[in-house]
């Protein structure tokens, strides 16, 4: 049920190693509920895995987004500023959040491994 071409973090983010895009998984958006606000990071900034990538707010809750990888932020999805609901509607497509030029090795899960993790939660 999780796309096989993507990699995943334990914090419920997906990483597309082809396009460098990062977003949150269908499991994460479902748990958050209606996303109503997104705060995006600045472009052209170097970040380490675990650094803040911004904030996602649902009607009820504020959630920090932490980078699953290290690298340089090369783009943010500004469409989300006006349409944060894209994260709910199309989490792996139009709901992407940032593009990061990844440096070094990232500790990521395969779709199968991620699915197992979700089932254990």
């Amino acid at each position: 049920m999780y796309p096989n071409n993507l990699k995943y973090s334990k914090d419920h983010e997906w990483v597309d190693l082809e396009t460098n895009r990062i977003g949150i998984t269908s499991f994460a958006q479902e748990a958050l509920g209606d996303v109503v606000f997104v705060e995006l990071p600045e472009v052209d900034v170097e970040i380490e895995a675990g650094d803040s990538l911004g904030v996602i707010e649902s009607v009820k809750a504020v959630s920090d987004l932490f980078s699953p990888v290290s690298g340089r932020i090369i783009a943010v999805n500004e469409e989300l500023l006006d349409r944060p609901e894209l994260i709910n509607e199309d989490p792996y497509g139009e709901g992407w959040i940032v593009e990061i030029e990844i440096t070094g090795e990232a500790d990521l899960l395969s779709a199968d491994e991620y699915e197992k993790l979700v089932k254990e939660e």
């Binding site: 509920g33 209606d34 109503v36 649902s58 009607v59 009820k60």
Partner: peptide
């Protein structure tokens, strides 16, 4: 329903989605 702890009660916080 998605259930949450509300004042010691296990209550539905949403069914279809809060905005809807």
């Amino acid at each position: 329903a998605k259930m949450v702890d509300f004042g010691g009660w296990n209550m539905p916080v949403q069914y279809a989605g809060i905005i809807e």
